[in-house]
């Protein structure tokens, strides 16, 4: 009967990933501040990194090093993929922040509803 708690704790990483994903998604949708939106977006995409990294991890395994003492290896491929995805994430954040800075220069605010009012008043 102890299979259910085992299952829940065994999937701990996935629970964290899903929780972070939903938190990030909620922040993107509910906040009007552009910087907060970007933070939410970052949280959202970082949770996917955790999902990928958890996929490759095997309990008690090491990095794939050819050696006599180790026989159980984690899968390095998802980890390598995520290095690429992190770079993409950094680039996205950079573009997003640059746009926010330009929006602040032009509008004098980074609140979405205030920007909307300024556009409509034209």
């Amino acid at each position: 009967m102890d299979s259910i708690p085992m299952n829940v704790s065994g999937h701990f990483n996935y629970w964290v990933a899903i929780f972070l994903m939903m938190t990030g998604f909620y922040v993107v949708i509910s906040r009007g501040n552009l910087i907060k939106k970007l933070i939410g977006l970052n949280l959202f995409s970082t949770s996917v990194f955790i999902l990928y990294i958890s996929l490759g991890k095997i309990h008690g395994a090491t990095a794939p090093i050819a050696s006599e003492t180790f026989h159980l290896y984690s899968n390095p491929l998802p980890h390598v993929l995520i290095l690429t995805a992190i770079v993409v994430g950094v680039a996205t954040t950079a573009v997003g922040l640059a746009l926010t800075a330009r929006i602040y220069e032009q509008y004098g605010t980074i609140e979405e509803d205030e920007i909307r009012i300024k556009d409509e008043s034209l």
């Binding site: 996917v48 996929l55 032009q106 556009d119």
Partner: peptide, 27 residues
């Protein structure tokens, strides 16, 4: 026009959500 900036930001947010969904699917 300055609305290009807000349009680009909106596209960035929605485009990144779309791309992340694709990333989850591939994973």
């Amino acid at each position: 026009r300055r609305r290009a900036l807000t349009a680009a930001f909106q596209y960035l947010v929605m485009g990144t959500i779309g791309a992340t969904f694709i990333l989850i699917g591939i994973g």
